[in-house]
Computed example of a mutant assay.
Amino acid sequence: MKAVIQRVSEASVTVEDKVISKIHQGLLILIGVEDEDSEEDIDWLSGKISRLRIFSDAKGVMNKSLLEIEGDAIVVSQFTLHASTKKGNRPSYIKAAKPDTAIPLYEKFIKQLEFDIQKKVGTGIFGADMKIALVNDGPVTIIIDTKNKK
């Protein structure tokens, strides 16, 4: 699994001119699933994201996690995170899992993150044309790949 995590002061997901998820302080998380991903990847990634110390403490130092600030989260599936641009100018998405594999893992990730942060998580709609709006706070953007846990 690949994740792009953005610390936001606000974010929303709109589908067909309807806002389906909206948060204030927290994280916008874009998730890309590939065929080799497993529940172990879900557990590790969710735990890492929920405990990632990227929010400021009273001294202005990034020392607090999403859990500690009781922040919100939106999770959006994004197969394009697995784009390969090695050959030619048209990206290949061959590594991205097909919906029959990706949807259950995406849904399990959402449930695990809700368990880890002890609150409901906003989402996009898998496969829909979505409009994502955000105010990246910092800016802080972190990329995590469960295949590279170093």
Rank of each mutant, 00 (worst) to 15 (best):
A83L: 13
S56F: 02
G122W: 11
I69G: 07
Y106E: 03
P104W: 01
Y106D: 08
I54N: 07
F55A: 09
S65K: 03
E70P: 03
P91Y: 05
E34S: 02
A83I: 01
H24I: 00
G127I: 03
A102W: 07
E68W: 04
N136H: 11
K48D: 14
T101C: 07
L134N: 14
Y93L: 14
K98S: 13
I42D: 03
D57A: 02
N63W: 09
L67Y: 11
I103Q: 14
Q25E: 12
A96S: 15
V121W: 06
F55D: 14
P99M: 10
K119G: 04
D57Y: 02
S77I: 07
Q118A: 09
S77Y: 08
I29Q: 11
I74A: 11
S38T: 15
R53Q: 13
A102Q: 09
I125E: 08
L113A: 04
H82V: 00
I54K: 09
S65C: 02
T101Q: 08
G71F: 03
Q25W: 05
K86P: 01
H24F: 06
S65N: 08
L66K: 00
S84K: 14
G71M: 08
I31G: 05
Y106Q: 03
A73P: 04
G32H: 10
S77R: 12
K86C: 01
G71N: 13
R90F: 04
S50R: 00
I103K: 15
K120F: 06
H82M: 09
I29M: 06
I103L: 15
M62C: 07
I117D: 05
K86H: 03
P104T: 08
D116L: 04
F126D: 04
L113S: 03
D43I: 11
A58K: 15
A83C: 06
T85E: 15
L27F: 13
N136S: 10
I94P: 00
M62L: 10
L27E: 08
D116P: 09
G88V: 09
Q118V: 01
G26E: 02
S92I: 06
W44S: 12
E70M: 01
K87Q: 13
Q118T: 05
L113N: 04
I31F: 02
K119S: 15
L66G: 04
D41M: 09
D57W: 07
V135T: 11
Q112P: 02
E70V: 00
S46G: 15
D43N: 13
Q78S: 10
G88W: 12
I132Q: 09
L67M: 15
E36G: 13
K98C: 06
I42H: 05
M130F: 11
K59R: 14
T80I: 01
T85F: 15
H82D: 06
D129F: 13
I42L: 08
H24L: 10
A58P: 01
D72Q: 14
E70Y: 07
T123Q: 08
F109D: 13
I54M: 06
R53F: 01
S92L: 07
L27S: 04
